[in-house]
Amino acid sequence: MRLDLGAIAKAGTSKANQTGSWRNFKPIFHQEKCIGCSLCKIYCPEGCVTMVEKKKYTVDYTYCKGCGICAEECSSSDIEMVMEEK
C-alpha cells in the first residue's frame, strides 16, 4: 500500500467492502403489508435499503449486516429476519 502526500482516500471507496458477509440473519422484505412509512430506509445504519416504488422497499444484501433494525421498527411487521445458511 502506498501512502500519498496527505494520505488522501478517494470519496465513497468503502463500497469495496462487501459487509453483507457479516450477516447471520437476513431480512426478508415481504412487500405485502407495506404501508410505505419508509422507516426501514430511514433507520438503516448502512443506508442500503432503497425504495423500488411506492409501498415497495428492498435491501441490498451486498452491504446489509443483518442488524434487524428494519424488521424491529417496521410499522406493519412486513419484514422478517431469517437465519442465513452459507
Binding site: 468503502s14 463500497k15 445504519p45 433494525i69
Partner: peptide
C-alpha cells in the same frame, strides 16, 4: 446517501445511523 455503504461499523450501530442522518 453521503455516507457510503461498506463502512465497518458494528451491526446496529447508532453512531453510523446518526452520521448518515
Amino acid at each position: 446517501p453521503l455516507l457510503a455503504a461498506g463502512h465497518t461499523a458494528c451491526t446496529g450501530c447508532g453512531e453510523a445511523l446518526a452520521a448518515k442522518l
